[in-house]
């Protein structure tokens, strides 16, 4: 039995955090969020896999703080029940709204953080390989990989069509209706060229023997069967929390 933070154990951690987000009090959730931020810097398995991932994480921290403040304040302001906890510039902040805002913000951020931590520290191709080893059909694996290929090339193609339409005098800077027409003049060649390219790519795949049927595994050594202690721990803790929550719910 091993105990390292590999991909399945990270998935079990995400599940555990989701369970916490729906069951534990908001103070615990805030604590877990802080632990995740520390983990991102302290635990190698949570380090971002690229500059882009690191940037997404930093951006999300700032975003979360803003959203937490905004959600808490706005709910305290709009949901007018319970005691008034503070009055500022003539606006009253109510207790029930404040608590609802804190609960909502902490759950929202914990849910989002857990998903984000998984993806910033796991290369997508590794995740796709993992899905394949768990039975995702080969054609869906190919579809996901092709999507990544298109995502690399689509922005530059859109930019080229945008410039071409601008050069032809498409009204990209005038009223909303004209701009919506300009949107069609960009999407139209984009979709048409993508259909033509898809036909050629589909033919090319068939010409290389790809016909949506079972094929030889690329990496037979990937079929890891050893049980990870951490994975068991996270699922076990999740079960305990769920059981305790049900017990409490039944006894209220």
């Amino acid at each position: 039995m091993k105990a390292n933070l590999d991909l399945p154990s990270k998935l079990s951690l995400v599940f555990f955090l989701w369970v916490c987000a729906f069951t534990l009090p908001w103070t615990f959730q805030v604590g877990l969020c802080l632990l995740l931020v520390i983990a991102r810097f302290a635990i190698p398995a949570f380090r971002p896999v690229s500059h882009r991932s690191a940037a997404a994480f930093s951006k999300f921290i700032l975003y979360s703080i803003t959203v937490a403040l905004l959600v808490t304040c706005l709910n305290a302001l709009f949901i007018r029940s319970g005691n008034v906890v503070a009055t500022l510039l003539g606006f009253s902040f109510y207790e029930d709204g404040l608590l609802f805002g804190l609960r909502t913000a902490s759950r929202l951020i914990l849910l989002s953080f857990s998903v984000l931590m998984f993806f910033i520290s796991t290369p997508l191709t590794v995740f796709i390989d993992y899905l394949q080893s768990k039975g995702l059909p080969q054609y869906l694996v190919l579809m996901l990989l092709l999507t990544l290929h298109f995502l690399d090339h689509l922005p530059s193609r859109i930019h080229q069509i945008f410039l071409a339409q601008q050069a032809r005098g498409a009204p990209v800077d005038s009223g909303v209706l004209s701009r919506t027409r300009a949107l069609l003049s960009i999407l139209s060649p984009l979709v048409l060229s993508s259909i033509v390219e898809s036909i050629e790519r589909g033919t090319a795949l068939e010409l290389r023997g790809f016909l949506s049927r079972p094929v030889a595994s690329r990496k037979p050594e990937d079929t890891e069967t050893r049980v990870n202690l951490l994975t068991i721990c996270f699922y076990f803790m999740s079960l305990v929390i769920i059981a305790y929550s049900i017990y409490r719910w039944l006894n209220v």
Partner: peptide, 21 residues
């Protein structure tokens, strides 16, 4: 699997990318 044959497979991949962009 029946739907995602030939040109449909790359086209679906393109449309996923289109949703995101």
């Amino acid at each position: 699997a029946d739907e995602m044959t030939g040109a449909a497979l790359p086209f679906v991949a393109f449309c996923i990318a289109l949703n995101l962009t």
